[in-house]
Design a binder for these strands. Structure first.
Lengths: 202, 202
DNA sequence: CCAAAAACAAACCGGCTATCCTGTTTTAAT
DNA sequence: ATTAAAACAGGATAGCCGGTTTGTTTTTGG
């Protein structure tokens, strides 16, 4: 009797794709449920892989977390917050675009899961220095870019004031996202956008 | 032979004190390490009590968490943020006092553990509706109080604008605290305070 | 063809939350 | 005063899930 061989689909090694997939799933879960509330098993299941494979790419959960910040969160901040401001006709216009654009997105999706940077910042930056530095780096890039743009718009603005102004914009964005998450509403973002406009318009 | 009785200190029932102690320790640990990263065991050890006693006062960890928000975090927000603004000579002066006062405190203590409301808001408000509502209540009280004070100062201000302005103040405070935590520096708070002053001065 | 990389599979130890049962103290009615 | 009931605290345990490790098999590049 010839044995019926179950044809298991041949495995194909694709380390880059695997790494990317794990990173994507982890970023999503960390964002939605938080770092501590997400187990590596959750990530394994989500990425349809195995514990061993994950371990091969990321030795520990912390390594994975740092990679998510450096390669995913940073990119997301860059795309949704920094780029639009750099390409807009003015800093004020860019800020308007970013705040209201994000508000629109939040209203399209039903749930407000918050700013990924902020989420991880508050959960991890006190617990671990490496996490703190990774998060701080992203905050600083954002703030510097904004400060630079503000001065490009208004050369009369001195560096220190521009820096303070950029800080206020970033802070109000973060805070508004926190309030938006708590109220499950985009309204705080729109309110802040309006007020920032009057401040920048002067 | 008479048995030597080890004199164990007689137990004294003091449910209120026990409850208070547990709540205090839990609030502190949740604030410093986060909700998920804190085990009930940690709370038990910190309060120098036992699992059974804790369970008697708070059936589950979630019950404890909700109590911390409603009875500790809310009070802290009231004392450090709302009261000073209500008693100051003007809203602008009050805001100045709060932001710089907190900044001073952060610099005295070595570590910036962030705004307790913000910390728990971002960690829990998406995970659980009860938590979200508890956090949102505190945010709203804060915002309403501020809005009311702004209008008392400037009767020309219409309600909607006052509300938006209050939102910006609360948001920038929250965000500045997040940045302060990530950078372990009070500078973001001072920067925001300065910029808010020019906005309110006009 | 072979060595190294990549992916799989299973299980480990430890700590977590929740619960149970026991014993003690307080309260209040008789 | 006495005593029954309620409130309170102690301590141990169960069951589960956490992150990580350990072998082994499969794939791939040189």
């Amino acid at each position: 009797m010839t044995q019926d061989i179950i044809e298991r689909p041949r495995r194909t090694n694709n380390p880059q794709a695997m790494r990317t997939r794990i990173l994507d799933v982890a970023a999503d879960l960390f964002q939605r449920n938080g770092y501590n509330a997400t187990s590596v098993h959750d990530v394994v299941r989500g990425a349809a892989t195995t514990g061993g494979a994950l371990h091969h790419h990321f030795a520990t959960k912390k390594t994975l977390g740092l990679a998510v910040i450096a390669e995913r969160v940073a990119k997301e901040v860059d795309e949704t917050a920094i780029q639009p401001i750099m390409t807009a006709t003015s800093a004020a216009a860019g800020i308007h675009t970013v705040f209201n654009g994000v508000a629109d997105t939040l209203e399209r999706n039903r749930a407000v899961s918050g700013c990924p940077l902020n989420n991880l910042a508050l959960e991890l930056s006190l617990a671990d220095t490496d996490f703190r530095e990774a998060v701080n780096t992203v905050f600083d890039r954002w703030r510097s870019a904004l400060s630079l743009r503000l001065r490009a718009d208004r050369p009369d603005l001195d560096a220190s004031r521009a820096h303070d102004l950029a800080t206020l914009v970033v802070a109000s964005y973060s805070g508004a996202m926190a309030m938006a998450k708590a109220s499950q509403s985009a309204e705080p973002l729109r309110a802040c956008a309006k007020q920032l406009e009057t401040l920048l318009g002067s």
